[in-house]
């Protein structure tokens, strides 16, 4: 089959690897930011919340850098097949990660507003949502790194759990606000937080879908899989 790959398109392969690594690096940074933002909420750490809001542009810059790399690769190297799928997916995943970063920043901003509010109310539901979302993102990033479609599929399916919890938290907060008028302001803020976490989990499922695209070349691989499984017999 001729010469080894490295001998022919060494520069190109290095560019692809760097793109792949840049996505993974951004994923790690966003996961860390997610943990930090929820920790900040827990501890009502105003100083840390300010830092998180200010650092959001670091994540934005990572996205731009990945998009630029992807764009350059397409423009100059004409990637094809699985290479092309990786380049497309890298750009999509970077966008999703950047949005997750925005939700983290959103939570930090809520912390800054809430700091003036009296403490109280239940946050257990939100914590459960956050724990699951953390786990989902961690696994989605692992799936991207290992191109593991089974892990990605599990992540995609588990998003429902977060949606169900969000529904519970919503009910819980509404009921509490109805019963104790003094908690309305705080409760509303908590709903915002819960909404942000729920949106993060949605974005994680998009990342899982991108992994499936890289592996299978099918943009709707999971939906196809779901339909196959739901066909009787």
């Amino acid at each position: 089959m001729g010469q080894g790959a490295a001998a022919i398109r060494e520069h190109y392969l290095r560019q692809l690897t760097e793109l792949d690594q840049a996505v993974q690096h951004m994923g790690d940074a966003v996961l860390e930011t997610m943990r930090s933002s929820l920790d900040t909420l827990d501890r009502m750490d105003v100083a840390r919340a300010k830092e998180l809001v200010e650092n959001d542009n670091v994540i934005d810059r990572m996205r731009h850098s990945i998009e630029e790399r992807a764009f350059t690769l397409i423009a100059t190297q004409q990637p094809a097949a699985s290479d092309l799928r990786l380049v497309m997916a890298a750009s999509t995943v970077a966008t999703e990660l950047e949005r997750i970063g925005d939700y983290c920043s959103g939570i930090a901003k809520i912390v800054l507003i809430m700091a003036a509010e009296p403490e109280g109310g239940s946050t257990a539901g939100i914590h459960r949502m956050a724990a699951i979302t953390d786990n989902l993102l961690t696994r989605a990033l692992e799936a991207f790194k290992a191109r593991d479609i089974d892990v990605a599929a599990a992540v995609w399916m588990n998003d429902d759990e977060v949606d169900d919890l969000y529904h519970d938290v919503f009910q819980e907060q509404i009921e509490e606000m109805a019963a104790h008028k003094s908690t309305v302001r705080r409760g509303t803020y908590m709903l915002w937080v819960a909404h942000n976490v729920e949106r993060m989990a949605d974005r994680v499922t998009n990342i899982a879908e991108s992994v499936a695209f890289v592996v299978t070349g099918d943009v709707a691989a999971f939906r196809d899989r779901l339909e196959m499984e739901s066909v009787p017999g």
């Binding site: 089959m1 398109r9 094809a80 097949a81 699985s82 290479d83 799928r85 099918d218």
Partner: peptide, 19 residues
């Protein structure tokens, strides 16, 4: 063929891994 070829040799060729 250019987005998702079936054969690994096709994939290797069109991505410039050999040729």
């Amino acid at each position: 063929m250019f987005s998702n070829p079936s054969d690994s040799r096709t994939e290797a060729y069109i991505t410039g891994r050999f040729g």
